[in-house]
Design a protein around this nucleic acid. Structure first.
Lengths: 189, 189
DNA sequence: GTATAAAACTAACAATCGTTAGTTTTGCTT
DNA sequence: AAGCAAAACTAACGATTGTTAGTTTTATAC
Protein backbone atom coordinates (compact mmCIF):
# COMPACT_ATOMS: atom_id res chain seq x y z
CA UNK A 1 0.00 0.00 0.00
CA UNK A 2 1.80 3.10 -1.19
CA UNK A 3 1.45 6.19 0.98
CA UNK A 4 -1.28 8.65 0.16
CA UNK A 5 -0.10 11.90 -1.41
CA UNK A 6 -1.04 15.21 0.19
CA UNK A 7 -3.36 15.86 -2.73
CA UNK A 8 -5.15 12.58 -2.16
CA UNK A 9 -5.50 13.41 1.53
CA UNK A 10 -7.12 16.72 0.65
CA UNK A 11 -9.54 15.09 -1.78
CA UNK A 12 -10.50 12.47 0.77
CA UNK A 13 -11.12 15.13 3.43
CA UNK A 14 -13.11 17.16 0.92
CA UNK A 15 -15.32 14.19 0.07
CA UNK A 16 -16.28 13.85 3.74
CA UNK A 17 -17.18 17.53 4.00
CA UNK A 18 -19.05 17.49 0.68
CA UNK A 19 -21.03 14.55 1.96
CA UNK A 20 -22.04 16.42 5.10
CA UNK A 21 -22.99 19.78 3.61
CA UNK A 22 -22.75 19.59 -0.16
CA UNK A 23 -20.12 21.09 -2.45
CA UNK A 24 -21.46 24.64 -2.47
CA UNK A 25 -21.74 24.94 1.29
CA UNK A 26 -18.16 23.81 1.96
CA UNK A 27 -15.62 26.62 1.79
CA UNK A 28 -11.94 26.26 1.13
CA UNK A 29 -11.43 27.57 4.67
CA UNK A 30 -13.59 24.73 6.00
CA UNK A 31 -11.50 22.24 4.08
CA UNK A 32 -8.25 23.83 5.25
CA UNK A 33 -9.39 23.69 8.87
CA UNK A 34 -10.20 19.99 8.47
CA UNK A 35 -6.64 19.50 7.20
CA UNK A 36 -5.15 21.62 9.97
CA UNK A 37 -3.69 24.21 7.60
CA UNK A 38 -4.62 27.58 6.07
CA UNK A 39 -6.80 27.88 2.98
CA UNK A 40 -4.05 29.32 0.78
CA UNK A 41 -1.85 26.31 1.55
CA UNK A 42 -4.30 24.01 -0.19
CA UNK A 43 -3.28 25.58 -3.48
CA UNK A 44 0.21 24.10 -3.22
CA UNK A 45 -1.50 20.77 -3.91
CA UNK A 46 -4.64 21.39 -5.91
CA UNK A 47 -5.51 23.80 -8.68
CA UNK A 48 -9.02 24.76 -7.67
CA UNK A 49 -12.07 23.74 -5.68
CA UNK A 50 -13.58 22.58 -8.95
CA UNK A 51 -10.65 20.23 -9.56
CA UNK A 52 -11.42 18.49 -6.26
CA UNK A 53 -15.05 17.96 -7.20
CA UNK A 54 -14.33 16.70 -10.69
CA UNK A 55 -11.65 14.31 -9.44
CA UNK A 56 -14.05 12.80 -6.93
CA UNK A 57 -16.93 12.45 -9.36
CA UNK A 58 -15.22 11.53 -12.62
CA UNK A 59 -13.03 8.86 -11.02
CA UNK A 60 -16.09 7.20 -9.54
CA UNK A 61 -18.15 7.50 -12.71
CA UNK A 62 -15.36 5.89 -14.70
CA UNK A 63 -15.22 3.05 -12.19
CA UNK A 64 -18.91 2.39 -12.73
CA UNK A 65 -18.55 2.66 -16.48
CA UNK A 66 -15.67 0.19 -16.57
CA UNK A 67 -17.52 -2.25 -14.33
CA UNK A 68 -20.71 -2.01 -16.37
CA UNK A 69 -18.86 -2.58 -19.64
CA UNK A 70 -17.33 -5.77 -18.30
CA UNK A 71 -20.74 -7.01 -17.24
CA UNK A 72 -22.38 -6.11 -20.53
CA UNK A 73 -19.68 -7.92 -22.48
CA UNK A 74 -19.89 -11.09 -20.42
CA UNK A 75 -21.99 -13.98 -21.70
CA UNK A 76 -24.20 -14.47 -18.68
CA UNK A 77 -27.97 -14.39 -18.42
CA UNK A 78 -29.83 -11.27 -17.34
CA UNK A 79 -30.34 -12.34 -13.76
CA UNK A 80 -26.65 -13.01 -13.30
CA UNK A 81 -25.78 -9.69 -14.89
CA UNK A 82 -28.05 -7.83 -12.50
CA UNK A 83 -26.43 -9.67 -9.62
CA UNK A 84 -23.06 -8.49 -10.91
CA UNK A 85 -24.32 -4.90 -11.04
CA UNK A 86 -25.45 -5.16 -7.44
CA UNK A 87 -21.99 -6.48 -6.55
CA UNK A 88 -20.37 -3.58 -8.39
CA UNK A 89 -22.35 -0.99 -6.46
CA UNK A 90 -21.63 -2.62 -3.14
CA UNK A 91 -17.90 -2.88 -3.92
CA UNK A 92 -17.65 0.79 -4.90
CA UNK A 93 -19.71 1.85 -1.89
CA UNK A 94 -17.48 -0.03 0.51
CA UNK A 95 -14.38 1.52 -1.01
CA UNK A 96 -15.55 5.14 -1.29
CA UNK A 97 -18.91 5.88 0.27
CA UNK A 98 -18.02 9.52 0.90
CA UNK A 99 -17.30 10.26 -2.75
CA UNK A 100 -20.60 8.75 -3.80
CA UNK A 101 -22.41 11.58 -2.04
CA UNK A 102 -20.83 14.05 -4.46
CA UNK A 103 -21.54 11.82 -7.42
CA UNK A 104 -25.19 11.67 -6.48
CA UNK A 105 -25.83 15.20 -5.28
CA UNK A 106 -23.20 17.57 -6.65
CA UNK A 107 -22.62 16.47 -10.23
CA UNK A 108 -24.52 19.54 -11.48
CA UNK A 109 -21.74 21.74 -10.18
CA UNK A 110 -19.23 20.25 -12.57
CA UNK A 111 -18.00 22.70 -15.15
CA UNK A 112 -19.21 22.35 -18.72
CA UNK A 113 -16.78 19.81 -20.13
CA UNK A 114 -16.81 17.38 -17.25
CA UNK A 115 -20.54 17.86 -16.86
CA UNK A 116 -21.13 16.63 -20.39
CA UNK A 117 -18.71 13.75 -19.90
CA UNK A 118 -20.42 12.74 -16.68
CA UNK A 119 -23.91 12.98 -18.13
CA UNK A 120 -22.94 10.79 -21.05
CA UNK A 121 -21.51 8.13 -18.74
CA UNK A 122 -24.61 8.20 -16.57
CA UNK A 123 -26.91 7.98 -19.57
CA UNK A 124 -25.01 5.06 -21.05
CA UNK A 125 -24.97 3.30 -17.71
CA UNK A 126 -28.73 3.54 -17.37
CA UNK A 127 -29.21 2.49 -20.98
CA UNK A 128 -27.06 -0.61 -20.43
CA UNK A 129 -29.03 -1.47 -17.32
CA UNK A 130 -32.34 -1.00 -19.15
CA UNK A 131 -31.25 -3.25 -22.01
CA UNK A 132 -30.22 -6.01 -19.63
CA UNK A 133 -33.63 -5.91 -17.96
CA UNK A 134 -35.40 -5.81 -21.34
CA UNK A 135 -33.57 -8.88 -22.57
CA UNK A 136 -34.35 -10.64 -19.29
CA UNK A 137 -38.03 -9.95 -19.81
CA UNK A 138 -37.92 -11.05 -23.46
CA UNK A 139 -36.34 -14.33 -22.50
CA UNK A 140 -38.84 -15.01 -19.74
CA UNK A 141 -36.28 -14.70 -16.95
CA UNK A 142 -37.78 -11.55 -15.49
CA UNK A 143 -41.43 -10.79 -14.83
CA UNK A 144 -43.00 -8.43 -17.38
CA UNK A 145 -43.57 -5.49 -15.05
CA UNK A 146 -43.03 -1.92 -16.17
CA UNK A 147 -39.38 -1.88 -17.19
CA UNK A 148 -38.77 1.76 -16.30
CA UNK A 149 -40.06 1.15 -12.79
CA UNK A 150 -37.90 -1.92 -12.34
CA UNK A 151 -34.79 -0.08 -13.51
CA UNK A 152 -35.55 3.03 -11.50
CA UNK A 153 -36.38 1.11 -8.36
CA UNK A 154 -33.22 -0.98 -8.42
CA UNK A 155 -30.93 1.91 -9.31
CA UNK A 156 -32.45 4.13 -6.62
CA UNK A 157 -31.64 1.57 -3.99
CA UNK A 158 -28.11 0.96 -5.24
CA UNK A 159 -27.35 4.66 -5.61
CA UNK A 160 -28.49 5.37 -2.08
CA UNK A 161 -26.45 2.59 -0.51
CA UNK A 162 -23.76 5.09 0.48
CA UNK A 163 -26.20 6.77 2.87
CA UNK A 164 -27.24 3.64 4.56
CA UNK A 165 -24.27 1.34 4.65
CA UNK A 166 -22.03 3.36 6.99
CA UNK A 167 -24.80 3.26 9.61
CA UNK A 168 -24.91 -0.55 9.65
CA UNK A 169 -22.22 -1.82 11.98
CA UNK A 170 -20.29 -4.97 11.29
CA UNK A 171 -22.33 -6.11 8.34
CA UNK A 172 -20.31 -8.49 6.19
CA UNK A 173 -19.97 -7.51 2.54
CA UNK A 174 -20.90 -10.96 1.25
CA UNK A 175 -23.96 -11.19 3.46
CA UNK A 176 -24.99 -7.72 2.32
CA UNK A 177 -24.63 -8.75 -1.31
CA UNK A 178 -26.64 -11.89 -0.79
CA UNK A 179 -29.46 -10.16 1.07
CA UNK A 180 -29.56 -7.26 -1.36
CA UNK A 181 -29.93 -9.64 -4.28
CA UNK A 182 -32.75 -11.40 -2.48
CA UNK A 183 -34.68 -8.24 -1.71
CA UNK A 184 -34.15 -6.54 -5.07
CA UNK A 185 -34.80 -9.56 -7.25
CA UNK A 186 -37.10 -11.86 -5.35
CA UNK A 187 -39.43 -9.39 -3.65
CA UNK A 188 -40.57 -9.44 -0.07
CA UNK A 189 -43.95 -11.18 -0.21
CA UNK B 1 -58.96 27.11 -5.77
CA UNK B 2 -57.94 30.28 -3.97
CA UNK B 3 -55.25 32.38 -5.66
CA UNK B 4 -51.68 31.82 -4.68
CA UNK B 5 -50.16 34.53 -2.54
CA UNK B 6 -46.97 36.25 -3.64
CA UNK B 7 -45.15 34.47 -0.82
CA UNK B 8 -46.35 31.11 -2.06
CA UNK B 9 -45.23 31.99 -5.58
CA UNK B 10 -41.76 32.80 -4.29
CA UNK B 11 -41.54 29.56 -2.34
CA UNK B 12 -42.65 27.55 -5.35
CA UNK B 13 -40.08 29.25 -7.57
CA UNK B 14 -37.42 28.68 -4.92
CA UNK B 15 -38.22 24.97 -4.75
CA UNK B 16 -37.56 24.65 -8.47
CA UNK B 17 -34.20 26.41 -8.19
CA UNK B 18 -33.24 24.46 -5.07
CA UNK B 19 -34.01 21.27 -6.95
CA UNK B 20 -31.69 22.26 -9.79
CA UNK B 21 -28.68 23.49 -7.83
CA UNK B 22 -29.28 22.92 -4.14
CA UNK B 23 -30.09 25.47 -1.44
CA UNK B 24 -26.55 26.76 -0.94
CA UNK B 25 -25.87 27.39 -4.62
CA UNK B 26 -29.04 29.41 -5.19
CA UNK B 27 -28.66 33.11 -4.38
CA UNK B 28 -31.44 35.50 -3.53
CA UNK B 29 -30.53 37.30 -6.76
CA UNK B 30 -31.10 34.06 -8.70
CA UNK B 31 -34.50 33.68 -7.07
CA UNK B 32 -35.38 37.33 -7.72
CA UNK B 33 -34.46 36.99 -11.38
CA UNK B 34 -36.70 33.91 -11.67
CA UNK B 35 -39.52 36.03 -10.24
CA UNK B 36 -38.75 38.97 -12.51
CA UNK B 37 -37.96 41.35 -9.64
CA UNK B 38 -34.95 42.59 -7.65
CA UNK B 39 -33.51 40.66 -4.72
CA UNK B 40 -34.44 43.26 -2.13
CA UNK B 41 -38.09 43.08 -3.20
CA UNK B 42 -38.27 39.48 -2.05
CA UNK B 43 -38.04 40.71 1.52
CA UNK B 44 -41.45 42.38 1.27
CA UNK B 45 -42.84 38.85 1.30
CA UNK B 46 -40.44 36.58 3.13
CA UNK B 47 -38.28 37.04 6.20
CA UNK B 48 -35.16 35.23 5.08
CA UNK B 49 -33.74 32.63 2.74
CA UNK B 50 -33.84 30.23 5.67
CA UNK B 51 -37.57 30.77 6.08
CA UNK B 52 -38.11 29.63 2.49
CA UNK B 53 -36.15 26.44 3.06
CA UNK B 54 -37.83 25.56 6.33
CA UNK B 55 -41.30 26.20 4.90
CA UNK B 56 -40.62 23.86 2.00
CA UNK B 57 -39.15 21.08 4.12
CA UNK B 58 -41.23 21.22 7.30
CA UNK B 59 -44.54 21.38 5.45
CA UNK B 60 -43.63 18.27 3.47
CA UNK B 61 -42.26 16.42 6.48
CA UNK B 62 -45.47 17.10 8.39
CA UNK B 63 -47.48 15.78 5.45
CA UNK B 64 -45.55 12.52 5.60
CA UNK B 65 -45.89 12.35 9.36
CA UNK B 66 -49.65 12.86 9.26
CA UNK B 67 -50.04 10.28 6.51
CA UNK B 68 -47.90 7.73 8.29
CA UNK B 69 -49.80 8.19 11.56
CA UNK B 70 -53.09 7.46 9.82
CA UNK B 71 -51.64 4.31 8.31
CA UNK B 72 -50.14 3.12 11.58
CA UNK B 73 -53.42 3.62 13.40
CA UNK B 74 -55.48 1.77 10.82
CA UNK B 75 -56.31 -1.90 11.44
CA UNK B 76 -54.99 -3.34 8.21
CA UNK B 77 -52.41 -6.05 7.70
CA UNK B 78 -48.75 -5.23 7.01
CA UNK B 79 -48.93 -5.69 3.26
CA UNK B 80 -51.86 -3.31 2.98
CA UNK B 81 -50.10 -0.77 5.18
CA UNK B 82 -47.03 -0.84 2.96
CA UNK B 83 -49.24 -0.35 -0.05
CA UNK B 84 -50.72 2.69 1.66
CA UNK B 85 -47.23 4.06 2.32
CA UNK B 86 -46.40 3.67 -1.37
CA UNK B 87 -49.62 5.52 -2.20
CA UNK B 88 -48.69 8.29 0.23
CA UNK B 89 -45.30 8.83 -1.39
CA UNK B 90 -46.74 8.87 -4.88
CA UNK B 91 -49.47 11.33 -3.88
CA UNK B 92 -46.99 13.73 -2.28
CA UNK B 93 -44.60 13.40 -5.20
CA UNK B 94 -47.31 14.24 -7.72
CA UNK B 95 -48.31 17.28 -5.73
CA UNK B 96 -44.90 18.72 -4.94
CA UNK B 97 -41.99 16.96 -6.59
CA UNK B 98 -39.82 20.09 -6.53
CA UNK B 99 -40.03 20.50 -2.78
CA UNK B 100 -39.03 16.89 -2.24
CA UNK B 101 -35.59 17.68 -3.62
CA UNK B 102 -34.99 20.04 -0.71
CA UNK B 103 -36.40 17.58 1.78
CA UNK B 104 -34.01 14.92 0.53
CA UNK B 105 -30.87 16.95 -0.08
CA UNK B 106 -30.96 20.20 1.86
CA UNK B 107 -32.45 19.33 5.22
CA UNK B 108 -29.01 19.68 6.82
CA UNK B 109 -29.11 23.41 6.12
CA UNK B 110 -32.09 23.92 8.41
CA UNK B 111 -31.29 25.98 11.46
CA UNK B 112 -31.00 24.27 14.82
CA UNK B 113 -34.62 24.19 15.96
CA UNK B 114 -36.19 23.06 12.71
CA UNK B 115 -33.32 20.66 12.12
CA UNK B 116 -34.10 18.84 15.35
CA UNK B 117 -37.82 18.85 14.57
CA UNK B 118 -37.19 17.45 11.09
CA UNK B 119 -34.78 14.78 12.30
CA UNK B 120 -37.27 13.58 14.89
CA UNK B 121 -40.02 13.33 12.28
CA UNK B 122 -37.74 11.43 9.91
CA UNK B 123 -36.60 9.07 12.65
CA UNK B 124 -40.16 8.35 13.76
CA UNK B 125 -41.22 7.79 10.17
CA UNK B 126 -38.51 5.21 9.61
CA UNK B 127 -39.25 3.57 12.93
CA UNK B 128 -42.94 3.24 12.04
CA UNK B 129 -42.02 1.73 8.70
CA UNK B 130 -39.62 -0.71 10.31
CA UNK B 131 -42.21 -1.84 12.82
CA UNK B 132 -44.78 -2.48 10.12
CA UNK B 133 -42.30 -4.66 8.23
CA UNK B 134 -41.30 -6.47 11.44
CA UNK B 135 -44.89 -7.30 12.26
CA UNK B 136 -45.43 -8.49 8.70
CA UNK B 137 -42.50 -10.86 9.04
CA UNK B 138 -43.67 -12.11 12.46
CA UNK B 139 -47.09 -12.91 11.07
CA UNK B 140 -45.71 -14.74 8.04
CA UNK B 141 -46.99 -12.15 5.56
CA UNK B 142 -43.54 -11.00 4.55
CA UNK B 143 -40.50 -13.11 3.76
CA UNK B 144 -37.90 -13.16 6.53
CA UNK B 145 -35.14 -11.30 4.70
CA UNK B 146 -32.94 -8.76 6.43
CA UNK B 147 -35.43 -6.20 7.72
CA UNK B 148 -33.07 -3.22 7.50
CA UNK B 149 -32.40 -3.98 3.85
CA UNK B 150 -36.08 -4.30 3.03
CA UNK B 151 -36.88 -0.99 4.74
CA UNK B 152 -33.91 0.78 3.23
CA UNK B 153 -34.55 -0.52 -0.25
CA UNK B 154 -38.21 0.44 -0.29
CA UNK B 155 -37.64 3.87 1.26
CA UNK B 156 -34.79 4.63 -1.14
CA UNK B 157 -37.03 4.02 -4.11
CA UNK B 158 -39.93 6.03 -2.70
CA UNK B 159 -37.71 8.92 -1.65
CA UNK B 160 -36.15 9.13 -5.09
CA UNK B 161 -39.47 9.12 -6.95
CA UNK B 162 -39.31 12.90 -7.31
CA UNK B 163 -36.26 12.57 -9.55
CA UNK B 164 -37.78 10.05 -11.81
CA UNK B 165 -41.46 10.78 -12.06
CA UNK B 166 -41.27 14.15 -13.87
CA UNK B 167 -39.31 12.46 -16.65
CA UNK B 168 -42.06 9.93 -17.33
CA UNK B 169 -44.61 11.49 -19.60
CA UNK B 170 -48.30 10.72 -19.36
CA UNK B 171 -48.00 7.98 -16.79
CA UNK B 172 -51.26 7.59 -14.94
CA UNK B 173 -51.03 7.86 -11.15
CA UNK B 174 -53.08 4.72 -10.53
CA UNK B 175 -51.04 2.66 -12.98
CA UNK B 176 -47.88 3.96 -11.35
CA UNK B 177 -49.14 2.95 -7.93
CA UNK B 178 -50.10 -0.49 -9.11
CA UNK B 179 -46.79 -1.15 -10.87
CA UNK B 180 -44.76 0.26 -8.01
CA UNK B 181 -46.51 -2.05 -5.56
CA UNK B 182 -45.79 -4.98 -7.84
CA UNK B 183 -42.11 -4.24 -8.20
CA UNK B 184 -41.44 -3.30 -4.57
CA UNK B 185 -43.41 -6.11 -3.00
CA UNK B 186 -43.45 -8.99 -5.42
CA UNK B 187 -39.95 -8.86 -6.86
CA UNK B 188 -38.96 -9.12 -10.47
CA UNK B 189 -38.00 -12.78 -10.90
C1' DG C 1 26.02 22.55 7.67
C1' DT C 2 24.39 23.81 3.48
C1' DA C 3 21.44 23.24 -0.53
C1' DT C 4 16.88 22.01 -2.18
C1' DA C 5 12.22 21.03 -2.57
C1' DA C 6 7.91 20.51 -0.31
C1' DA C 7 4.60 22.65 2.28
C1' DA C 8 3.30 25.84 5.17
C1' DC C 9 2.49 30.86 6.14
C1' DT C 10 0.62 36.22 5.91
C1' DA C 11 -1.82 39.53 3.48
C1' DA C 12 -4.73 40.84 0.36
C1' DC C 13 -7.73 41.08 -4.08
C1' DA C 14 -12.18 41.50 -6.52
C1' DA C 15 -16.51 39.42 -6.56
C1' DT C 16 -20.49 37.96 -4.49
C1' DC C 17 -23.34 36.89 -0.46
C1' DG C 18 -27.83 37.81 2.48
C1' DT C 19 -29.94 41.58 4.11
C1' DT C 20 -31.44 46.49 5.51
C1' DA C 21 -33.04 51.28 4.92
C1' DG C 22 -35.44 54.44 2.65
C1' DT C 23 -38.06 55.73 -1.51
C1' DT C 24 -41.04 55.27 -5.50
C1' DT C 25 -44.44 52.94 -8.27
C1' DT C 26 -48.67 50.26 -8.95
C1' DG C 27 -53.36 49.20 -8.51
C1' DC C 28 -57.38 49.19 -6.03
C1' DT C 29 -61.30 51.61 -3.17
C1' DT C 30 -63.87 55.32 -2.10
C1' DA D 1 -59.17 62.57 -7.73
C1' DA D 2 -57.42 61.24 -3.30
C1' DG D 3 -55.92 57.90 -0.14
C1' DC D 4 -53.84 53.68 0.93
C1' DA D 5 -51.62 49.40 1.00
C1' DA D 6 -49.01 46.18 -1.61
C1' DA D 7 -45.06 45.58 -4.05
C1' DA D 8 -41.60 47.17 -6.47
C1' DC D 9 -37.27 50.01 -6.69
C1' DT D 10 -32.07 52.07 -5.69
C1' DA D 11 -28.18 52.02 -2.94
C1' DA D 12 -25.50 50.23 0.12
C1' DC D 13 -23.65 47.50 4.37
C1' DG D 14 -20.45 44.13 6.42
C1' DA D 15 -19.19 39.46 5.88
C1' DT D 16 -17.52 35.83 3.25
C1' DT D 17 -16.09 33.70 -1.10
C1' DG D 18 -12.22 31.43 -4.15
C1' DT D 19 -7.92 32.60 -5.25
C1' DT D 20 -3.18 35.03 -5.91
C1' DA D 21 1.41 36.79 -4.78
C1' DG D 22 5.18 36.66 -2.20
C1' DT D 23 7.59 34.86 1.90
C1' DT D 24 8.98 31.70 5.56
C1' DT D 25 9.29 27.22 7.71
C1' DT D 26 10.16 22.25 7.63
C1' DA D 27 12.26 18.09 6.33
C1' DT D 28 15.48 15.46 3.57
C1' DA D 29 19.91 14.54 1.06
C1' DC D 30 24.64 15.24 0.47
Amino acid sequence: MKPESRKEEIIRAAAILFKEKGYSAVTMRDLAKAMGIKAASLYNHIQSKQEILSTIIIDLAEEFTTGMNQIVNSDKNATKKIENIIDLHIDVTLRNSDGLASLNNDWMHLEEKNLQYFEKMRHDYEENFRNIVKKGVDQGEIRPFNIEIMVFSTLSTLRTLYLWYPKQKNIDADILKHDMISVLLKGVI
